[in-house]
């Protein structure tokens, strides 16, 4: 236990003293995950909204597929992206394997279905409520999409944060396509895995503390938003 206490002290001093390597890793993690989540939102939200509003044959099947994709095991996603990007793969010429871009791609594949599914759920509920009113105001089905997205904005930001939480905490996919290369593709989760196996617990613990702090911050933001939504909709929920 004594050794744990000293490792922990060391970890805290790494954080507080602004250890360059530690913070470089944190920054790379944030950069990769923020990019991935934004791209996922740009793809996933319109797809989710379209699935909520449009009526076409095969829509149910698509929704089931999308929900299934939400539960994709990250290592499998890593493997598939690896196969796409590897030298002999269809996208091999781009030479993206073992770069931060490859990690972003993997996280986009993981997070986009989440974004689309959550958006579909939220927008579909809202569309049901708004449908007659919007039709009465002369808003067509297609034109109702931006209206619904905007009015669902609080729930969508919550979805965004949920996606970020998943992306930043993910390890299986990014370690496969990123390769965990020092100073290039080492992010918080992959570094924790590596440093722990090397016995460098201080570094692993320091990153763990930051990761938990981020998770807490994200959840605090989600609950603050939920609270605000509830307060605004108090009477007509």
């Amino acid at each position: 236990m004594q050794s744990f206490a000293s490792e922990f002290n060391q970890a805290i001093s790494l954080i507080l003293n602004g250890d360059a390597e530690l913070w470089a890793i944190v920054l790379l993690s944030l950069r990769v995950s923020v990019f991935a989540v934004l791209i996922s939102a740009v793809i996933g939200m319109p797809v989710g909204a379209a699935l909520a509003v449009a009526r076409f044959p095969g829509r149910r099947a698509l929704i089931i597929l999308m929900n299934a994709l939400m539960g994709l095991p990250p290592v499998v996603v890593g493997l598939l992206v690896y196969l796409m990007l590897s030298r002999s793969g269809p996208l091999g010429v781009l030479e993206l394997l073992y770069t931060p871009t490859a990690m972003i791609i993997a996280q986009v594949v993981l997070v986009t279905p989440i974004m689309a599914a959550l958006t579909r759920q939220v927008v579909e509920m809202l569309a049901e409520e708004y449908s007659e009113q919007l039709r009465s105001l002369g808003v067509s089905r297609l034109a109702s999409v931006p209206v619904l997205l905007w009015d669902a904005r609080l729930a969508l930001v919550t979805a965004l944060l949920a996606g970020f939480g998943r992306a930043i905490a993910e390890v299986g996919a990014v370690i496969i396509v990123g390769g965990n290369i020092n100073h290039v593709t080492r992010v918080m989760t992959t570094t924790i895995a590596l440093e722990t196996s090397k016995g460098n617990l201080a570094m692993a613990l320091a990153l763990g503390v930051i990761l938990i702090g981020l998770a807490v911050a994200v959840n605090a933001m989600v609950s603050a938003l939920t609270l605000r939504a509830e307060r605004e909709g108090l009477r007509h929920a």
Binding site: Y130, Q133, S136, D151, L154, E232
Partner: peptide, 17 residues
Amino acid sequence: HKARQAMVFQSPVLLRR
């Protein structure tokens, strides 16, 4: 015609704005 009609519903739906 419909574009020149308006309706106030029995339980009005207000936008979340």
